[in-house]
Design a protein around this nucleic acid. Sequence first.
DNA 1: ATAGCGCCCTGGTGGC
DNA 2: TGCCACCAGGGCGCTA
Length: 286
Amino acid sequence: MPELPEVETVRRTLEPEVLGRTVLSVAALDPLVLGGEDPAAFSGRLVGRAFHRLERRGKYLLFDLGGLTMTVHLGMTGRLVAGPPQGPLRPHDRVVWALDGGREMRYHDVRRLGRVLLAGPAGEALGPGASGFPPGLRRLGPEPLAENAASVLARAFSGRRTPIKALLLEQRVLAGVGNIYADEALFLAGINPLRPAGGLSPGEVAALASALRQVLGRAIEAGGTTVSDYRDGRGRPGEYAVQLKVYGRGGQPCPACGGEIRRTRVRERSAHYCPTCQRLDTNKRS
DNA sequence: ATAGCGCCCTGGTGGC
DNA sequence: TGCCACCAGGGCGCTA
């Protein structure tokens, strides 16, 4: 479940291993994760190019190869690990890049929901008619760590009767938040996940923006959350799981009030919350 | 434009 | 022991 903190951690840990390095060869083992592109063509477009920059937008990684951009979305179980050669191919290895200086980068993905795509120059990613870029990348909302996040959210929530949890998960509204950090931020802000987004007070929207900033920031500091599959760019798990307050803790006591954390469904996704600390009935609020 | 639903994809788990 | 339904959930396409 790589979300913004996990993808940002991958970006940071990958950077020193790949920046400035040239692609010597590529083994593309699974056309599905290439979005159907022919593996030989995929390889041919990459060989001889060097990684100039590595950026993140939402849950996407953008490798700038100068005139060519490689976008990577890790899906649910994708891992991107770079360093010394990792030896023989293992099950679920999907793409292997041999780099100069004796380095190697490998994309590993059990469920194959991730994608590794090649497109034009990075500057074209947001323009019209930019082909090759994942459609979701162009429609990405603002970054939750941006300075103006609170005002952006206030505008996006206004007039919407959709449950706040569902809106937080929409990448067009906010880029990079997934199920784990949506639940954690709503808990920290004391907001019930089922509340209609447009019904939040200005103070609650500000609290939510602040909670997102805090939760995402601390998760990045901890190197992300590893529940099962996630690893950083060096193959190491993240350490934020022990700090989770509600996600995955249905039936356990709330760390704030001691009440029982509930697990329910919002839009066919699991949602974890404390019914006492995150009241649905706003009439009863102080 | 918005909301809701089904599908993709695989391994792990729990029931029988 | 084996078989199967079900779940994880991000993104996308389809329908109303």
